[in-house]
């Protein structure tokens, strides 16, 4: 019988049986009750993570609900990142709350690949600013409402988005002016400067 390519050949004990935690199904019910039709598909739960998907337009409202609702109290933003699935763009948030043992993963799914836009959550977590800047830098996702959305790692005149799946290094090299590091000196010969010998002759 052909073995599934995804199954380890001599697997040890599995994490999901044995010691792993019980799945927090109460959180699932609470989320379904609070968010209702804003949810974009079913609430998925695996290991220690509960995953919900929302439409990009709903992100601000959903995040505010998750942050402020007294039964949810997701006060701590554990991570914010962009994802390029190859067909669509996503922004993935991870949240933590003292009401549940699970991580909550919120996926703002189905962003337009040509013009990915999503509302910023800096009104709730000002610290998400750099996270959003990084997602913008790497994926070109525009966070509407972030007042400092510029490149953070790559040079300011860089034109590509390196973590996108369609990023190709030769393409990128041809598109970027290669002026990422600002030149300290711009060579220019003033009219009255003495003529210099050609460089190749000197090197020889």
């Amino acid at each position: 019988m052909a073995r599934s390519p995804h199954r380890p050949q001599r697997a040890g004990r599995r994490l999901s049986d044995g010691r792993s935690r019980a799945i927090d199904s109460a959180l699932k019910r609470r989320l379904e009750a609070t968010l209702g039709e804003r949810l974009y598909g079913p609430v998925a739960q695996r290991h220690d993570t509960t995953e919900i998907r929302v439409a990009p337009g709903d992100v601000a409202a959903v995040m505010r609900t998750l942050h402020d609702d007294p039964d949810l109290r997701f006060r701590l933003l554990a991570d914010i990142c962009g994802v390029d699935t190859g067909t669509t763009m996503q922004v993935v948030y991870h949240l933590w709350s003292d009401t549940t043992p699970d991580w909550l993963r919120v996926i703002a799914a189905d962003l337009d690949r040509d013009d990915p836009r999503v509302p910023s959550i800096t009104f709730l977590w000002k610290g998400a600013e750099w996270g959003e800047r990084e997602a913008y830098d790497m994926f070109g996702i525009v966070f509407e409402g972030n007042r400092d959305l510029r490149r953070i790692y790559m040079p300011p005149d860089y034109t590509s988005f390196p973590l996108r799946k369609d990023f190709l290094l030769p393409d990128d090299a041809s598109r970027s002016p290669g002026m990422g590091v600002r030149h300290m000196e711009q060579a220019r010969r003033p009219a009255d400067a003495p003529a210099a010998a050609p460089r190749s002759a000197k090197a020889g």
Partner: peptide, 16 residues
Amino acid sequence: KLPRLLRPRPGRAFAA
């Protein structure tokens, strides 16, 4: 005990 070549099933995981 794990194989040399690791091919996890498609999915997402968050570890902190």
